[in-house]
Design a binder for these strands. Structure first.
Lengths: 246, 246
DNA sequence: GTACATTGCGTCATAATAACACATTATGAT
DNA sequence: ATCATAATGTGTTATTATGACGCAATGTAC
């Protein structure tokens, strides 16, 4: 493959794909052969594709899903983010000849995107047979290659801020969900407990949830009511914003 | 000049430099020879410099100032953002030979930064004798090259959001300022009137302003009190955040 | 002096938030 | 069946934040 003719040079995309399961905020990671470190799913930018499109492509390829919530959050371009040893190791592992390898060993700047997906809908896709791709609790992320740890941190930081500005949580839940589930999600992302009753009032007052005439089945204790997310009302809320401030 | 050896290929930096004067939020723009359109100040990324450093360099060069508030806000990478006609025109204008010009005519992705500067401290610097660089009211921005209008819009949007999350306004004012001045600034950025008395209460309650024992001189009507910004207290506020939301 | 514009401080009604009480529904042990 | 337990659903109250407004003080223009 001759990347130099088909891809934007020195520029890559890395995706922080979040999922929510077992009261854990999980991140989709790929195990690399390099010192057993893990990596964010990423890719390059075809010369005839918008960077956003290239990010969507990565996401499709890795989750098998379409129409996912995806947002660019930052671009990382420290000189030192590139690791000479890592570059060499990758080339050796894939048996890429020195000449073609020059493209891979140039300095790379990477654009960070984060995605919110329904854990149960997403099916992690391997790039090849040997590859290991897994959902990992964000609190137990192993060592990552390059500056991927910093990228992940920044993504989580952005997600927390976004949560205060607009209701994005539903993207991580199935179509029908309960208020307690939504609360657990908020608590997990923000990493602190919230009061049940105040949470209910605040989240329903936003006016983007539809209460269904249906309760969750097969649960211990009292069955909680099911809700769906109202996309039309959400669009309205987006315009006015959640916490105005001024 | 052989850019291909010294600069990151296909990647540029554009800075939206904001200043505040005469109750106007102004943007520093450069007039180009291309159809008399204007441009954001920008630059390329030396291979041995972090992208943030490269942005600081652009800022230093254009304002003569150091230690400026500077923040990356988005990266723009649509395929169509590059304009074939524009690329040719630039090469012809600077008399760049076809071979060396290839570097300029490749696809470019650009990283957007916005800066907040004290209008009176900044001295717009020309890149060369012919160049025209000017502060222009953000409400009267002329036609811009490429997708610079979209970049500017996004910068302003980000500034408005940031204003709700943390007190950044003081960056646009001189060291000593009055509450009415600060309010005018907020009104200009947010594009709506605020109540004097409520503004005073809210802005002082944040606890990052020091009231000086000094009034503004040579003003019509009642002389307003002068304040300074308290950087230590600001750092504390940054950690907790302004509008928590949850 | 008087009219006028602007600043500084205060009041009041309303809305948003935090802390907490209690009844309801379902499970599982006895 | 009864009871303890655990979760959900709804309500109450005190506190705080916000929005709308009144009024005196200060300085300019005439």
């Amino acid at each position: 493959m001759d990347n130099s003719k088909n891809y934007q040079p020195g520029l890559s995309i890395d995706c922080v794909i979040f999922g929510f399961h077992d009261n854990q905020l999980k991140v989709l990671l790929i195990k690399t052969p390099y010192e057993n470190k893990w990596s964010l799913p990423g890719g390059f930018i075809p010369l005839d594709q918008d960077i956003d499109t290239a990010a969507v492509t990565v996401l499709n390829k890795r989750t098998g899903m379409e129409g996912i919530f995806l947002r660019q959050f930052a671009t990382f371009g420290k000189v030192k983010r590139n690791d000479e040893h890592f570059g060499k190791a990758v080339l050796e592992h894939f048996n890429i000849p020195e000449e073609a390898g020059k493209w891979f060993r140039q300095r790379f700047v990477t654009i960070g995107y984060y995605a919110l997906v329904d854990f149960l809908q997403a099916v992690p896709q391997k790039g090849n047979q040997q590859e290991i791709i897994e959902w990992i609790d964000h609190k137990e992320v192993p060592e990552l290659i390059l500056d991927h740890a910093a990228i992940l941190d920044k993504a989580l930081d952005t997600l927390r801020t976004e949560l205060n500005l607009m209701p994005v949580g539903y993207n991580l839940l199935p179509e029908k969900f309960t208020i307690p589930e939504l609360q657990k999600l908020y608590e997990t992302i923000l990493d602190r407990k919230l009061d049940r009753r105040n949470f209910l009032r605040k989240i329903t007052n936003i006016g983007i949830l539809n209460k269904l005439d249906e309760k969750k089945s097969n649960v211990a204790h009292k069955a909680p009511n099911l809700y769906t997310f109202d996309k039309d009302k959400y669009e309205e809320v987006l315009k006015s914003g959640l916490n105005q401030g001024w």
